[in-house]
């Protein structure tokens, strides 16, 4: 019986070894990685017009939840990075449009990636480019229509709107519009935040692979740390300087919940 077990273990080990080495050999070429952004409110799936309570103890409901993500970078365990071609990386995620929440990064060089980096917002370079480079989600007449400040050229990076009894504004509304890429000729508020997420398991990319990365974005976390933001203290934010506290807060609202390697 013992001998049999040993034999079995040896066979199993050999088999594992073979599979592992096979997999390593197979990892070649380029492949896609699909990102799925799952908006959350605490432990629950995010929903509009649903009562939640923020860290300051205020009740609130949402009617709008949109944000830009861009400038994706994939990082391997040894720290080496793959920076995606910048013009391919701009995505406006709109809770009201579920198809916007999932997109695929294509032609990723084969590898085992352990981290994902991106920014919330639109970098300063793209924010000052001529209009020929404002296509897709950056088109101010298209997908980006209500995510652009015309009077202070630049994109709104993050927009949440809704109602709360804590708001003293008309209709108990709150509106948080975060933008500010740092200024064109005069350095001013920069609310671009870089997010770095560690995957709970490696993301295997390459020819014949189609991994899916599920990212949670918790809107209530964006009210929690480092500042327990109170709607009563300010329900309307439309200027970059006063929005920094919100940008600092949403910088930690993302996490990779799980990875499917296929």
């Amino acid at each position: 019986m013992k001998k049999f077990n040993l034999l079995l273990s040896t066979i199993a080990l050999c088999a594992l070894f073979t599979i592992a080495s096979c997999n390593k050999e197979k990892l070649k070429g380029k492949g896609p990685i699909t990102l799925h952004f799952d908006n959350r409110a605490g432990s629950a799936d995010f929903a509009f017009l649903t009562n939640y309570t923020n860290a300051a103890g205020e009740e609130l409901q949402f009617t709008t939840f949109k944000y830009y993500v861009s400038n994706f970078v994939l990082v391997k365990a040894d720290g080496s990075e793959y920076v995606l071609p910048q013009e391919t990386t701009y995505h406006l995620l709109n809770e009201a449009n579920s198809s916007s929440l999932e997109f695929t990064l294509t032609d990723i060089p084969a590898g085992e990636y352990t981290k994902l980096k991106f920014i919330v917002g639109v970098d300063s370079l793209r924010s000052t480019m001529d209009v020929a480079s404002r296509t897709g989600d950056l088109d101010p007449a298209g997908a980006g229509a209500d995510m652009y400040w015309s009077w202070n050229s630049g994109y709104i990076f993050y927009k949440i709107e809704g109602t709360s009894p804590a708001s003293t504004e008309m209709g108990n509304m709150f509106m948080y519009h975060v933008g500010g890429y740092g200024g064109y000729s005069t350095p001013s508020t920069n609310n671009i935040r870089t997010i770095q997420l560690t995957a709970p398991s490696t993301i295997t990319a390459g020819e014949g692979h189609a991994p899916e990365v599920h990212i949670y974005a918790d809107v209530l976390e964006a009210f929690k740390t480092p500042t327990a933001y109170s709607i009563a203290s300010g329900a309307m934010v439309h200027m970059p300087a006063s929005a920094s506290v919100i940008a600092d807060n949403y910088a930690d609202m993302f996490k990779i919940d799980h990875v499917h390697n296929e």
Partner: peptide, 23 residues
């Protein structure tokens, strides 16, 4: 406004100028 191309959006959308969403 940091780009001539983006300039017209401002008066088109301004509520006291042309008051129309650019889209």
């Amino acid at each position: 406004i940091n780009q001539l191309d983006m300039l017209p959006i401002a008066p088109i959308e301004n509520p006291v100028e042309m008051d129309l969403e650019f889209a």
